[in-house]
């Protein structure tokens, strides 16, 4: 499994058109990096990342624990043959009288299909950024399609109205879409390790890791430990929890034509 990342110069035409051949200005870039922090917060909220998972087993609840019925993604994202998501998840959230733990609902309740897994769970900002732009992950969606997805998709919108005692996505939906556009319009700049370090995003050094393996099972505690290099470049490692596959994260130096990569180490 190879995750080729597009460098700046190879970005989607839509984004390029917005910022011109010279690329974003330093100011634009800073705004985009800032906007991406919001994108990340939303993408990695339990309401979103519980289904944007590596492997085939979704998570549930705010704590992101394994989905109790051992349900799986299935051939089209709609669950296993014989146990489609719709068996329990209806077209809308159940009435409040069903209790806070009744399965939530929204139209076409599903996981991303295997062809477009869009794994967000546990990724660092650079890795998440790379993933969103990876056409192998997003099934060739361009930014127009991605913006449409995050703006209009009813299942996405459910994240802001999850029912029960589930925490809704904390960032207002309109603000999230706006930030997503800001980032996209700036050419969907690659958020570098230095950016992430500066914003306090990547602080998870080995010395700060949770002490026990059990704690490390909590989502968010499996970020890589990138080693910063010259001019925003970095190299790091990320592990996929479900199969312990180790991925090498490579973030190229700013301004070079080398591609960022996320490949099996």
């Amino acid at each position: 499994m190879r995750h080729e990342l597009r460098g700046l110069a190879m970005l989607a035409p839509l984004a390029l058109a917005a910022c011109g051949p010279a690329g974003p200005s330093a100011e634009q870039r800073a705004a985009a990096v800032d906007a991406f922090a919001t994108v990340k917060e939303v993408f990695q909220h339990p309401r979103c990342q519980n289904c944007h998972i590596p492997g085939d087993a979704p998570l549930q609840f705010d704590a992101g624990v394994a989905h109790a019925q051992a349900v799986v993604r299935g051939p089209d994202g709609h669950g296993a043959p014989g146990l489609p998501c719709g068996t329990c998840h209806g077209e809308s959230n159940p009435p409040a009288s069903y209790g806070p733990h009744a399965p939530p609902g929204a139209p076409h309740w599903a996981l991303p299909p295997p062809s477009m897994r869009m794994v967000t769970q546990g990724l660092s900002a650079p890795a998440l950024c790379a993933m969103i732009k990876d056409t192998k992950e997003n099934n060739g969606r361009d930014f127009a399609a991605l913006i449409k997805h995050v703006s209009e998709d009813k299942l996405v919108l459910w994240g802001w109205n999850p029912g029960g005692e589930r925490k809704p996505v904390p960032v207002p939906h309109a603000q999230f879409v706006e930030k997503f556009k800001v980032w996209a319009d700036a050419g969907a700049v690659s958020v570098g390790v230095t950016d992430a370090r500066r914003s306090g995003e990547m602080t998870n050094f080995p010395s700060e890791r949770p002490a026990t393996a059990e704690d490390r099972a909590v989502p968010g505690h499996r970020k890589g430990d990138p080693i910063p290099g010259l001019a925003g470049s970095a190299v790091g490692w990320n592990a996929r929890r479900e199969n312990r596959e180790t991925l090498r994260v490579f973030e190229p130096r700013a301004g070079t034509t080398r591609k960022a990569s996320l490949v099996p180490a």
Binding site: Q69, A70, V71, V72, A80, P81, G82, L83, T87, C88
Partner: peptide
């Protein structure tokens, strides 16, 4: 849905 289910199919469909 799956006329010849494997053990894995049974796990996936009947663990509910």
């Amino acid at each position: 849905a799956k006329p010849e289910p494997t053990d894995a199919d049974i796990d996936a469909a009947l663990s509910g």
